[in-house]
Design a protein around this nucleic acid. Sequence first.
DNA 1: ACAAAAGTGTTTGATATACACCCATGT
DNA 2: ACATGGGTGTATATCAAACACTTTTGT
Lengths: 253, 253
Amino acid sequence: MLTKKELKEYCSNARENYLPHISIDCVVFGFHEGLMKVLLLQIKNGGEWYLPGGFVLKKEPIETAANRVLKERTGLNNIFLQQFHVFGDPERSKQHFDMYKDMLPAKDNWFTNRFLTIGYYALVDFYNVNPAPDQFSADCIWCDLNNLPELKLDHAAILKTALDALRLQLNYQPIGYNLMPKEFTMPELQKLYETILDEKLDRRNFQRRMLGFGILKRSEQLRRGGAHKAPYLYSFELENYNAALKEGFKGRW
Amino acid sequence: MLTKKELKEYCSNARENYLPHISIDCVVFGFHEGLMKVLLLQIKNGGEWYLPGGFVLKKEPIETAANRVLKERTGLNNIFLQQFHVFGDPERSKQHFDMYKDMLPAKDNWFTNRFLTIGYYALVDFYNVNPAPDQFSADCIWCDLNNLPELKLDHAAILKTALDALRLQLNYQPIGYNLMPKEFTMPELQKLYETILDEKLDRRNFQRRMLGFGILKRSEQLRRGGAHKAPYLYSFELENYNAALKEGFKGRW
DNA sequence: ACAAAAGTGTTTGATATACACCCATGT
DNA sequence: ACATGGGTGTATATCAAACACTTTTGT
């Protein structure tokens, strides 16, 4: 927990460097070997949980800010971050860091301001992540999506909205390039979809549809070493993958 | 064009009442009898065109702000407004109202600030609209989507993004409740879709699909008086319509 | 009578779903 | 040998696309 002096300094710094009233919250979904997690911070002392977020530097593009926050929290760079919604209820930040709310007069206290928050989500391989708490947080850890702690503020709603957006994305954009190793098997990719959707899919239909997107290339190689029949290895055709990210799969009209 | 004194007063007022660095831009698509338009403002003197926008009051929810802007510009209330993107490039507002940029020192000049803008779109019946210019604008008019003037700032990009979002929306949400009269014919509704998509649709397939959504109720009545065979009248089943707005039509996974 | 608009199918092809069979591999 | 996972294929239903015929109405 910050002392009054530290808080004062933080606030004056923030006022100098960041755009006021604007924050970014990142919903970092992590996936590895069939497990789906989300990155959460636990506040010092209070113990409450919240999404990793941050502020936008005065001359910084918001996409850059989102990437910076993600980098600071995970060490990961160059990840596909998707803006999905702005949350702008004036009441939403009422309880923000209320542990600090009486330590400074409101006009000097960055944390008692109203914040609109821009929501971004990312989907990363949590095996590659080094979760790093920020100065307000005791801990930064992967939490199971099906077993979340109670979240502060409107962060539960933000997370829910992000998950809906991610699921919607599956309908018209490819996914997985950050997540899968360079080469992967079809069942491995299927596991990703099943985990996101929280639903079993038929392996044969999945494969047909996936190949239909035209973003996969089958290698001559097989994944040896596992038990049972060795599956083929696939990789993304990056050119087509990126084109599909931009264009989207066909809509219906 | 404002005098220096008026500008000064406007800026001081704005600083007092609005959240800094945040704006809202509305892409108001208008439709009536097969014509699709977009509402644009033309700045006084300069003659440049831009999207109707505004700012967020310090204690106002952003959705309310968007509705207020729409109301001020069109007189319309209770219209489905869809947030679609935040534009946050620090360079985007560089040329904002540059006619005023030298009239006040930068620190006092609201208009030389950086603004993130939250994009909303709406689809309204332009027959019901009374376009009303704001104090900076000489004119507020419906422009043909296929024959747009050059737009200031990044407003052309915002408009394009809004149109894409609107078209995407057709795939998973109903549309038209604000637009159509209480009762309307299937060909009338089809015209709306064709206009948005800028594409002809087959009348029989359109009808089948539309009815499949389960949001329409066919009346016993026919639309009499036109030439040729009298078409049936339909109305939206508001309950199902609203449910579909929330839930969306089925995705594919 | 006829042209034009609208109602109501049908045919065809594509895609989704469900399911069956065979193959490879470690135990 | 066998259980398990993986490759491949097929039947069926469902849906989209293209298209034809009939009905209504004003001129």
